[in-house]
């Protein structure tokens, strides 16, 4: 089994594609830093205490709008929201414009991580199908190993590759963040917005590990789905295509979650649960659906996918 793992790892890193993916993560992260910096450059580096004045000024501006009265309802609503947010920020003592490498990391890592998911899904769906496609699988399966061992070694390799990309991303991120925004405390205070609920005031130390951990589990689920499905296909192109389709359609379909949340069966399919990072901020993604429930549902699907594809591969005729 050790030999199989080592072989898979060697094969992976002998492919140009692998290095391309890793390089792309680094370059995208660097690019994002520049874009980010150009947007916030003007509002950083204020003097001590200036930010409170700025927030208070904004509050009084909005209050004037409310007093003078407008015809537009949305303007009123927005003014009220801004006032509330600013008051909460003042109360929590969070400078919304403060920036350092830790806050930068907390805000940007996950947006680049979507590329890691994409690349990992591509590797996961091609690592078996490519070998069936180009005929090398038969050389593996005539060796004295069980077929499930071959599969397992490939699966572990994919997961290990995703971890390498994650670590590379975080290291690049910290490096860029430090160069551009200086060092900051790991317990810097931050505000988290969420699709499912209001803003949450917390620290990087509290939220970042949860976000990354949940993101990783979410990605693992995509890996399991694409890896399992790819075993059914002889063609690498088809396997990769279908996996990427599933990856993208998942987020599109999740847009309909609000419409479907009331139906009894919706929470039992895996789709709405493939949004685990949301749990870093909220307790429930749908009424009555918490992290325990989501993880249970995903685990059941994961076992079903792995079991079905494993049994299929174990018995498959390799023509």
């Amino acid at each position: 089994m050790g030999a199989l793992l080592k072989n898979e790892w060697i094969k992976l890193w002998n492919k140009k594609q692998t290095w391309f993916f890793l390089g792309a993560i680094v370059i995208i992260m660097i690019g994002l830093t520049f874009i980010y910096q150009s947007f916030i450059a003007d509002s950083t580096n204020q003097g001590e205490g200036e930010w409170t004045i700025e927030l208070e000024t904004e509050i009084s501006e909005q209050e004037e709008i409310l007093e003078s009265g407008t015809d537009e309802e949305w303007m009123e609503a927005q003014a009220e929201q801004t006032i509330q947010e600013n008051e909460e920020l003042l109360e929590a003592g969070i400078n919304p414009n403060e920036m350092n490498n830790m806050i930068f990391m907390n805000e940007t890592v996950l947006s680049v991580a979507s590329f890691i998911t994409l690349f990992t899904v591509i590797v996961a769906s091609s690592i078996v199908s490519s070998e069936i496609d180009n005929g090398t699988m038969k050389h593996l399966l005539i060796r004295p190993y069980e077929r499930w061992q071959v599969l397992l070694s490939k699966f572990i390799t994919v997961v290990a590759f995703s971890i390498v990309m994650m670590v590379t991303l975080i290291l690049t991120n910290i490096l860029m963040g430090t160069i551009f925004f200086g060092t900051g405390s790991y317990s810097s205070q931050v505000m988290e917005m969420s699709f499912h609920g209001g803003p949450l005031y917390t620290t990087v130390a509290n939220i970042f590990p949860a976000k990354i951990g949940l993101y990783f589990l979410n990605m693992l689920m995509f890996v399991i789905i694409s890896f399992s499905l790819s075993i059914l296909f002889k063609s690498q192109t088809l396997a990769v295509g279908i996996s990427i389709f599933i990856l993208f359609s998942t987020s599109v379909l999740q847009g309909f979650s609000l419409l479907l949340a009331d139906t009894a069966w919706y929470k039992f399919i895996f789709l709405p649960h493939l949004d685990l990072p949301a749990y870093a901020v909220v307790d429930e993604i749908m009424p009555g659906v918490g992290i325990g429930f989501s993880l249970t549902i995903l685990a059941i699907y994961a076992i079903a996918f792995i079991g079905a594809s494993g049994i299929y591969f174990q018995k498959k005729d390799l023509m």
């Binding site: 030999a3 199989l4 080592k6 072989n7 060697i10 094969k11 002998n14 492919k15 140009k16 180009n134 005929g135 090398t136 038969k138 050389h139 593996l140 005539i142 060796r143 004295p144 190993y145």
Partner: peptide, 23 residues
């Protein structure tokens, strides 16, 4: 079995090493 297939992005020697390791 049928046409011999290899990892064509690797050298012949590296290919052999893979199979040697599986022995």
């Amino acid at each position: 079995v049928e046409n011999p297939s290899f990892y064509d992005y690797m050298s012949g020697y590296k290919n052999l090493q893979l199979y040697a390791r599986m022995s």
